[in-house]
Write a protein that binds this DNA or RNA. Sequence first.
DNA 1: AACGTCACGCTTTTT
DNA 2: GCGTGACGTT
Length: 749
Amino acid sequence: MSDPLLADLNSPQREAVLHGEGPLLVLAGAGSGKTRVITRRVAHLVSRRSVAPWRVLAVTFTNKAAGEMRDRLSTLLGPEAVDLVVSTFHSSAAMVLRREAEAAGLSRSFVIYDEGDQMQLVRRAIRESGVDPSAVNARDVLWRIDVEKNAGRTPDQVRVPPHQSRLAQTVAVYRKYQQLLRAANAVDFGDLLLLLVELFRRDEATREKYRRRFEHVLVDEFQDTNAVQYELLKLLAPPGANLVVVGDDDQSIYRWRGAEVGNILGFRDQYPTAKVVTLEQNYRSDQTILDAAHAVISRNERRMPKKLWTARPRGELLDLLISRDERGEAQEVARRIQDLRREGIADYHGVAVFYRTNAQSRVLEEALRLARIPYAVVSGRSFYERAEVKDACAYLRLMVNPRSDADLLRVINTPPRGIGDTTVERLTDYSAAQGVSAYEAIADPERIESLGKAAVRRLKSFRELVDQLCETGRMANDAAGAVERMLLASGMVEAYQIEGTPEATGRAENLRELQGAASEFDLQFAAQPKSKESLSPELPPLQAFLERISLLGEADGEVGEGKVSLMTLHAAKGLEFDMVFITGMEDGVFPHARALDSSAGAEEMAEERRLCYVGFTRARRRLFLSLAQGRALYGELKFNPPSRFLSEVPRELFGFEEEALVQRQVLAVPPRVRRRAEEGEGPVIDRSYDQRTDFDGEAEGARGIRVRHSQFGMGVVVQVDGRGPNAKLTVEFESVGPKRVLARFLEPL
DNA sequence: AACGTCACGCTTTTT
DNA sequence: GCGTGACGTT
């Protein structure tokens, strides 16, 4: 037992690492060391069981996770780690698709379209598929296409029941959209997986080739896999194969992106021989935090039973912060952060503030700035989303693949060169009618009869520009040089310089930054050790760079050094902090109003609850839960009740004087609920009874009681007329003074 | 082609 | 309450 790969593992972890042949499901609770299990297992396979590194495929969801795993494996294995295939679903699929481009019906130089390109293409597909443009909405259609692709369905596989003309139209657009993608030699993110599934289904020889190659397949965050991803895994690893999936059903928070918790819950149905190992020892949080998390998550019905425990002490009690409104909340958070720092309990780096929706970040940022607390919003994107950067990328992709209509149309008049909407429309009409790409159409613009002389001339000169760029692209032996020449030839930088405004200067700087990113890439690319077993096909530097920026959002959501981190609860997954603040703990904010909607399925609420579990379990030492009594939402002031998740946490886990809060009339503890609470099992805030009918028969006695109205907030009943839910009450509100309202719109506190 | 204005609608967002 | 997209005006 002196093997250093095993020495510091607990017994289930070791069991997972040492597991021999066949499928394995590792149910890894939050903070239970799952990445450690995967990396050790891979290291063990290679160094103790003589598995060739290139026969191991480890798949993750994010580039960041893949990068971390690769780093850890390099440390464990040294140079041998180079041959391991550690990458995201999408990039490994892209690599295989490029290698097998012909069989998959693609050209090897296909480009990958992002959401903006997709949107543009959908709009065009709507126009060209003959469906009534006013009957469909491009956003909805794109969403639906994504859903179908995530489910693994091609247009032909979508079942349209009779009399569903709307769906039929959507499918027609989907079909056209696919044609346009193929014509442009482009794929979208969904295609990367779907086309590979199709290829593996159709072509047994190719499927066998990869089955043989990947003797061991390991999947991280398995709870987030969607139907196509699972299908791909099943094709690659038939029952009985060495497939190791690691995940936590309780942390499945991407259902709306197609993730299927059912994949992990039902894994044993697909892989009946799978061994199951459950990791429940948590190495991150104090017990109090784990107890709170468990109290919330255990209310979900469809989950694998497990309960985290720690060898660590109980730790501090939870803090509940209650503020008047969202600005008060932000100030309170800032104040607490300063306190923590002053008392030497935490440094900025160890503090994170989470919120349910991005819209909440603004007020928080303002308060932190005012308090001079350094912070960083972890969003993970932005740079590659800027218009000028996207334009530049469109040029780069054109250099590799001029048939890419989305890219060509994007930059045909960027910078302005007198090719207006009318000309573009005539061009696309022509190219659609002729069934050629826009690039092919402008080879000879005279053939487009509808065009005037000036337009023809301008299109010709644009075509020359594109050809020149393609030539440059072919000759380039590094990405940075190609970017530089593109920036010059396209006139982009020049146009911004002429404009001269501070904004334009900023844009020009961003373009330089892109060039900088390219040179950085070139250095890495040159230094990268290449093995002949590498899965990634040999790509010219510019193409490799493009592949990288298409598949890699940005320099992954960096948690700033010496800064407080601000992020959505979703973005928090996988991270950990000493101190965690979760703001907006109100029904309607978190859980989100959409999950509260009675028309929403219970699964929505279950997912919010999992999100809450994710949020809680990010905290190592202290967890601050914060709510505002009133909050500006969509431009109007809303008074939402405290989050139900708060009431699910046992009261003894909170470090406050309940009486004081009741006196401040912040916590609603109606007498009968209080009775249960005093018996020791009740929650702090219980609103499980139906408040709306609570005035029934008691209306006369309602005078003087405190109520809450969803619009007017807190108030006191001063007069009662009538009985039951339709009784008219006069209420003195704190915010707006006296109002007459119906009892059923009030919530007694 | 650039600007204005109006209406809408509105989580989360690994790739 | 704010940003986006669709339309209309100059």
